[in-house]
């Protein structure tokens, strides 16, 4: 039920933002349209795999959602900082006379299990620090990551990258 109400309000908010000056005509149309869309997309905030997992029940209730908001803001700040750092790195590599890249795909172990957590981890890895996620192997619990510059003597089957570990620690607090 709480998932249904949350979905309804999010679609309603998106409708208001899309048709910005909120006149009464727009608002009434938005109420009807958000109801119709949320009839189809009711279960966007719960996936069937997460329900059967042990430990998923204790995250219920509005108090847990409120507790996650400061973690999410911290995540956005860290993401912006890492993104700017990665952009400076790429600009340096592009303008260097002989392009200093040693690319390759490596495996990175991860402890995250939930759908949303893995998606956010993969997206934030793609946006930061010379790395792009190629694929996820869920049984082994590892990401295949394409790195822009691999240092000498790095074990390719289990790599430790500090930026990825930081994101993992934050996302564990949000989604697990």
């Amino acid at each position: 039920m709480i998932s249904y109400i949350l979905t309804y309000f999010i679609w309603f908010l998106v409708w208001i933002l899309l048709t910005w000056p909120p006149t009464p005509k727009n608002l009434i149309t938005g109420l009807v349209a958000a109801y119709l869309v949320s009839l189809f997309k009711m279960d966007i905030f719960r996936s069937p795999e997460n329900k059967s997992r042990p430990g998923a029940e204790k995250n219920k209730g509005p108090a847990s959602y409120i507790k996650k908001i400061p973690w999410f803001l911290y995540y956005v700040v860290v993401l912006l900082y890492e993104c700017v750092k990665a952009n400076i790195d790429v600009a340096f590599r592009v303008m260097h006379p002989d392009v200093p890249v040693r690319p390759g795909t490596v495996k990175v172990r991860t402890g995250l299990k939930s759908d949303a957590g893995l998606t956010f981890l993969a997206n934030s890895v793609t946006l930061t620090s010379g790395a792009a996620t190629v694929d996820v192997n869920r049984e082994k619990g590892c990401l295949y990551v394409h790195l822009l510059y691999i240092k000498d003597g790095l074990d390719a089957s289990a790599v430790n990258i500090p930026a990825i570990n930081k994101f993992e620690k934050i996302l564990e607090n949000i989604f697990e």
Binding site: R93, V94, V99, V101, P103, A132, V134, L148
Partner: peptide, 24 residues
């Protein structure tokens, strides 16, 4: 910078990386 990376980098995957980060 992103589009320069799209031209100068050697293969598809590195091109994808540079262009995605900078252009985004």
């Amino acid at each position: 910078f992103g589009c320069i990376g799209l031209i100068r980098f050697p293969d598809v995957y590195t091109r994808l990386q540079s262009s995605a980060k900078c252009v985004m």
